[in-house]
Amino acid sequence: MSIEALILGKLHQKAEQRTSKSGKPFVTAKARAASGDGESLFVNVIAFSESACAALLALEAGDSLAMAGTLKPGAWVDREGNARPSVDLVVAKVLTVYGLKKKREASTQSPEQQPLESAPVVEFEQDHAWLAGGDA
C-alpha cells in the first residue's frame, strides 16, 4: 500500500548522494517528523528527481523541510520486541527555506556589500501548485 503524502519535519542527518547499478544518481536521507502523540517519527527518504535531490543535498542536519511524495507505511520490531512504525517516502517535491533565505540575503545587501563571486541563488521549485493540491 502507498499513499500520496506531505511530510513536514527536519532533516535528521545530512543527505547522501548515491548511484544505482544502472548508473543513475539518487539521494537518500532520514527526516524526523512530529507524530500526533508528541513523539518523533523517522522517515526514510529517497529522491530520484534532479530538483528534489539538489534540495536535499543543500540542507544540513536540523534544517526544516516539507516533502511531497509516495508514502509507504510499515513496521519494525525493536530489541524489546515492541512493534514500531516505519515510514518510507519516495520524494517527488521538496520545499525548503534555503532558496528563500538566499534570495532575501542577496536582496538586502547593497551592490557595494555583495561579494564579487557570491554563490548563485538556487531555486528548487518553480511551481508550488502541489502545496494547494494541484498537479505540478
Rank of each mutant, 00 (worst) to 15 (best):
V122R: 07
D37P: 11
L95N: 11
A129L: 05
S118V: 00
S64C: 04
T96W: 08
K72A: 10
I3R: 15
D63V: 03
T70K: 15
E16W: 07
L89H: 13
F42E: 07
V91H: 07
L56K: 04
A132R: 12
G62Q: 09
E60H: 03
G81H: 00
K30A: 00
V45C: 11
V121W: 06
G38C: 03
L11C: 00
V77S: 10
E117K: 11
S49N: 02
A47V: 13
V90S: 12
A33Y: 14
G134C: 01
D78P: 14
A129T: 04
L71K: 10
T108D: 02
E123N: 14
V45K: 14
S40D: 06
A58T: 00
I46M: 13
W130N: 08
A129D: 05
V45D: 07
A52M: 10
T70Q: 13
K14T: 06
Q13K: 14
A68P: 08
V77P: 07
A54I: 03
L116R: 11
W130S: 01
Y98C: 04
A83W: 12
N82V: 08
I46S: 10
N82K: 14
V97W: 11
K93V: 05
S107G: 00
L6D: 05
E123M: 06
E16R: 15
L100R: 12
R104Y: 06
D127R: 09
V94P: 08
L6G: 08
Q109V: 02
G134E: 01
L59A: 01
V121A: 03
L100A: 07
K21N: 00
G38V: 03
I46V: 15
Q13H: 09
S110T: 13
A54H: 09
K24L: 11
K101G: 07
V43Y: 10
A132V: 11
P85L: 12
A15S: 08
K101V: 06
R18Y: 03
S35A: 15
G134T: 01
V45L: 15
S35H: 15
E123R: 11
A52T: 07
A34R: 02
E80Y: 01
D37Q: 14
V43M: 09
A47L: 13
A55F: 11
E16H: 14
L41N: 12
S40Y: 13
A34K: 04
Q17H: 07
A15L: 09
A31E: 00
I7R: 05
F124Q: 05
L8H: 02
D88Y: 14
A31I: 06
L89C: 12
R84Q: 13
I46W: 02
N44I: 06
Q126T: 05
L131I: 12
Q13C: 02
V45R: 10
F48S: 08
L89M: 12
V94H: 05
A54S: 15
V45S: 10
G9L: 08
T108A: 09
L6C: 03
F124R: 06
A31P: 08
W76Q: 15
V122W: 01
I7W: 13
P115S: 05
F26R: 14
